[in-house]
Amino acid sequence: MTIRATFLGTLCRPSFVVAIAAVAIFVGPTSAHKAPHTPEQLKQYEDVLMEEVRKGDLLFHGDAATAKQMGVVLSTTGMACAMCHPMASDTHPQSYPKFQVETSKFATLRDMINWCIEKPNQGEKIEIDSEAMKALEAYIAWSNSGSVLVPGKH
């Protein structure tokens, strides 16, 4: 009962109602999701991914203009992620989450991205849900497409 009451209470918040309405407007009529996907829709989804991958690729390879545009300092030593991880090799996104030896903590890929930024690259760590983080994650995952999920593997 407590849970339900809280949920109803949340629904009554004006800001949340506005957000739901906004999503509905963008997504379309409630029945829209029941229609088969169109090729155009699939293309849009793919485009969204590939734009993230493109930005992530540039950040990962030390592109100064992209880093500046996204307001991040991923390195101060001239090192870029790709210098130790060409083609995002040895990043092993398929092994996360896992116990991370470097931090002695159970970690996600994003945690490790930040560790690499701070330690080897001597840069400034980025917000865990920032645009730059999503882009880096997108590029690393895309580069490793087809690798088999083995969470926890060292």
Binding site: M50, V53, R54, D57, L58, H61, D63, A82, M87, A88, S89, D90, H92, Q94, S95, W142, S143, N144, S145, G146, S147, V148, V150, K153, H154
Partner: peptide, 20 residues
């Protein structure tokens, strides 16, 4: 095996942004 970077089989794609 755990001491080797080869212990995790990986499939990799070439980068794409440098040709765009």
């Amino acid at each position: 095996d755990p001491d080797s970077s080869l212990s995790q089989p990986e499939k990799l794609r070439p980068r794409m942004a440098d040709n765009m």
